[in-house]
């Protein structure tokens, strides 16, 4: 078990970004809280195995993502929209239109993005993680991260454009 003071410092530093990542992946507050707590519980029992203290952030995000994938495997797959392959030419959606959306609508759109693209997109927006850090967290090659980001960002903006046009997007319960 980690030392109490050290553990509290770690929680204070990382619980909010971890929760944001969890929320982006899971889409519900309850699941995001569970994932965040589970991540710290795993840290408490296995964190001492981490030799390089500079890797704590990557370690925590990796664990949370793994826990999310494990929980997702135990559930019915979340339905998502079938989209055509992302095109590099993003849909015409203005920054102002995006600003009028609320966070729940953006997260609801992210939930419809192909599952494999959700985590890189969330890390891209949330953490300013470098491409290499995203690759480390998701345990995939750097080139895979770049291609998944291109497709994931494209899908997200396509979905947002579609929702803005249709004027319908059930908000998530934040």
């Amino acid at each position: 078990m980690a030392d109490n003071a050290e553990f509290e410092n770690l929680v204070a530093r990382f619980y909010a970004p971890l929760y944001q990542f969890a929320m982006s992946l899971a889409g519900t507050e309850a699941d995001a809280c569970d994932l965040t707590q589970q991540t710290f519980a795993i840290w408490a029992t296995k964190g001492h195995q981490l030799r390089d203290a500079s890797k704590v952030k990557t370690w925590l995000f990796t664990i949370l993502h793994r826990e999310f994938l494990d929980s997702r495997r135990r559930q019915t797959r979340f339905p998502h929209c079938d989209l055509e392959s992302a095109e590099f030419e993003l849909p015409s959606i203005s920054p102002a239109a995006i600003s009028r959306l609320d966070t729940a609508q953006v997260l609801a759109a992210l939930q419809k993005v192909d599952e494999v693209y959700q985590a890189p997109v969330a890390l891209f927006y949330l953490q300013d993680c470098s491409y290499q850090e995203i690759a480390d967290i998701l345990k995939v090659p750097l080139g895979t991260v770049k291609s998944r980001l291109a497709r994931g960002l494209g899908q997200l903006q396509q979905l947002l454009a579609r929702d803005l046009t249709a004027g319908q997007n059930p908000p998530l319960n934040l």
């Binding site: 982006s24 920054p95 927006y125 949330l126």
Partner: peptide, 13 residues
Amino acid sequence: EALRAKFRQIAPP
């Protein structure tokens, strides 16, 4: 930037 701002509005309970 607009999208990033939306993501960063996610607040832990």
